[in-house]
């Protein structure tokens, strides 16, 4: 099992222009922006579980990302 990041759609404010997790994720093409839902989402097969996205999201008080076991 691996810990990977998970974005909760209800809390994510990517529709208002936030791109913090997408920008600061060290992995390329892993946290992406869904142009239909206007939310960030995680490509789980690429996520290494470093939790940097959780830190930047929580620092901005959005708290939209949690780590889940897969």
């Amino acid at each position: 099992m691996y810990a990977v990041a998970f974005v909760e759609d209800e809390k994510c404010i990517a529709n208002k222009g936030c791109r913090l997790c997408i920008l600061y994720c060290p992995e390329a093409d892993t946290l992406k922006f869904d142009p239909v839902k206007k939310k960030a989402y995680v490509v789980e097969s690429r996520c290494k579980g470093c939790e940097l996205c959780v830190v930047v999201c929580n620092n901005a008080k959005h708290n939209a990302i949690t780590m889940v076991m897969r």
């Binding site: 060290p26 960030a40 290494k48 579980g49």
Partner: peptide, 28 residues
Amino acid sequence: GWKDIGSAKELIEEHSLCAGCPEAIAFR
């Protein structure tokens, strides 16, 4: 530029650096 990150395909793919490595962010 950096604004393309997240919406366009990046020029780096599934590298083997450690989880959370700042060098990977720099590469992006």
